[in-house]
Amino acid sequence: MFVLVVGGGKVGYYLAKELVESGHEVVLMEKDHARADQIADEIGSIVIAHDGCEGKYLAEAGANRADIVAAVTGDDEDNLVICQMAKHHFDVPRTIARVNNPKNEELFKHLGVDELISPTRMILGSIEQDIPVHELLHLGSLGGSDLELIEAPLLPGSSRSRRAVRSSRSSARDVRSRSGRTRSSPKATRSSRSAARSARRRSTASSSGTPSRSADALAVCGRGVAFALAERT
C-alpha cells in the first residue's frame, strides 16, 4: 500500500516509521526543512521537504496513486484541505485527518474525510472513563495547544462511525487495556506491538460477519501507543 503522510510531527514520524516497518510504501511531507532532514536522516529517503497543502507538491508526492492520505499536521484547516484535495482532486480512496478542535469533527466528516483522529476527544474520553493519568504516555504536543497526544483508540458511541470502524473499535479497546497494564515504556513498546498484532488478528476476526467482510485492520503502534484503524480494501 502506498501511504502519503503529511506532517512530520511526532505523529507523522511514528506513523511513517511503523508503516515502513510493516512493509508499506510511505512518503512523508514536511515543510520545515530542518525537521524533514532530521526525519530523512533517521528513516531514509522518504521525505519531501515541501508543504503538503500545495496542490503541486501533493502531485509530486504521488497523491494520484496513493492508497491512503493521512493529514496529521497541527492545523485543522491544513488537514482538512489536504484530505479534501486528496479525495476530490487526486481520487485517493481513503483519507485520514487529525482534528484538534473536536467541534470540527462534524464538519470534516461532512466534507468527506474518511477517518478522523481526534486527540482532544480521546483525552476527553479517557478522562471521562477515569483512566489514571500516569498510565498515559506522552506522545507529542499538538501545535498551538496545550493538549498532548497520548493514545488513539477509537471511541465507542460515535453514532456516525461506519461499520468497519466499529469492528476495529472493540479491538482497539483491547489494545488499550493490554498496553495499559504495562508500566515501563521500553517494554510497553514491545507489548504494544504484540498487542497490535493481536488487534489485527482480532479485528479481522471480529469484522467477519459484518457487511464489510473484507475489512482489514491496520494496526499502528508507536512508543507505548497503539492506533488501530480499520480500513476497507
Binding site: D75, E77, D78, L80, V81, E106, L107
Partner: peptide, 16 residues
C-alpha cells in the same frame, strides 16, 4: 493569508 484557513472558513460558512 492562509489558503487553507480561507477554505475551511468558507466551508464552515456553507455547511454550518
Amino acid at each position: 493569508e492562509g489558503d487553507n484557513r480561507n477554505v475551511m472558513a468558507a466551508q464552515l460558512a456553507t455547511e454550518a
